[in-house]
Structure formats: structure tokens, C-alpha cells
Amino acid sequence: MIAAKQLHMTVYASLLAALTAAGAYLAIPIGPVPIILQNLFIFLSGLLLGSKWGVASVGVYLLAGALGLPVFAGGVAGIGRFAGPTGGYLLGFLPAVYVIGWITERTRKRAVSDVLAMVCGSLIIYAFGVTWLKTLTGMTLANTLAVGMYPFILGDALKIAAAVPIAKALRPVINR
């Protein structure tokens, strides 16, 4: 039974990594910066799979990108992306998904705890992304925040709001 459960989790983690890749292609044009669905699926990996399998899912996604499969935003791939200006956000996904999974594993799966977990997750992503962007471009902190964080906050709030009902609908499918 344990092996079967593991196989299911392997397949689900791969599916979420594939969804993240697909989400990097789909952009919803609302507001000045298009909303990219990539981190919605990062949030969902944490919420649905928990810390261990969430990290596995995101790790496979990043590895696929590093090897040059076209899975990052805009279809641009390659190991060079980690050294590029958005590399910090990509690396930040790993600790973020771990923390989201860790929080949901320790709380009753309610909307409030889900939102709390995702807010912590986004803060971690921004901490990594903005620090890296700042060291790479040499901008001041205020400027970096204006470029690399403020435009995305509204989108993130919408994604968090969208992730709650999706997680609620999918948990029964996964935890059968």
C-alpha cells in the first residue's frame, strides 16, 4: 500500500510540475503587468502535496528548466536563467513551497491557514527574488522593490484568492 501511495504522489508531483510549466505560458492580461500563473501552481504544489512532495515537484520543474526544456516564463529555458535577473524568484520557489507545505501539514486545512501559508510563501519568494535582483543590477532597495515586487502584489492577491477554492476542490481527489 505504501508503494502505491508513493507512486500516486510521484505522478501528482509530476503533474503539478507540468501545470507550473503550462502556467508559465498562460498570461492573463489584467493591469500593467500580466499575471503569470506559474506561482499559482507553486502555491498549489505546497497546499496539495505537502512539504516533501511539493519540494520534489518544484525541484523537478527547476531541473527540467536548467536542462533546457522549455518550461520557464516565455518558453525561454536553460541554465542561464538562474543567473539572469529573475533567477532569484526561481530559487525562492523551493523554500517557499517547503514552508507552504509545512504550514498546511500542521494546521487543519481551512481557508484561513491556507491563506496564511501562501502569504508566507510569497514573502519568501520576494525575499529571494528582490535580493538577487538588487545585487545583480545594483539598484537601490526602493527602486528594486518598485520594479520587482509592487507591480505583482495585486496579481498575487488574486492568485491566493483563486488557490483557496481550487485546493478545496482537489483535496478530496488526491487524498482518497
Partner: peptide, 30 residues
Amino acid sequence: VEWLLNPFPFIPSKRIATMMSLVVRFIPVI
């Protein structure tokens, strides 16, 4: 991928390789 990850200890290279090919398989399905 499996060949690449094989020299590293503590990394389940077989499972990661399987997951990678599943990811490639799932994208058109989605």
C-alpha cells in the same frame, strides 16, 4: 538525466528521471 544524476549519492536518480519524462508527457495533455 539518470546518467547525469547517478554519480551523486542520496539522490533518487531513477525516480527523478521518471518524473521528468512524466512532466514532458503531461504538458500536451493539459
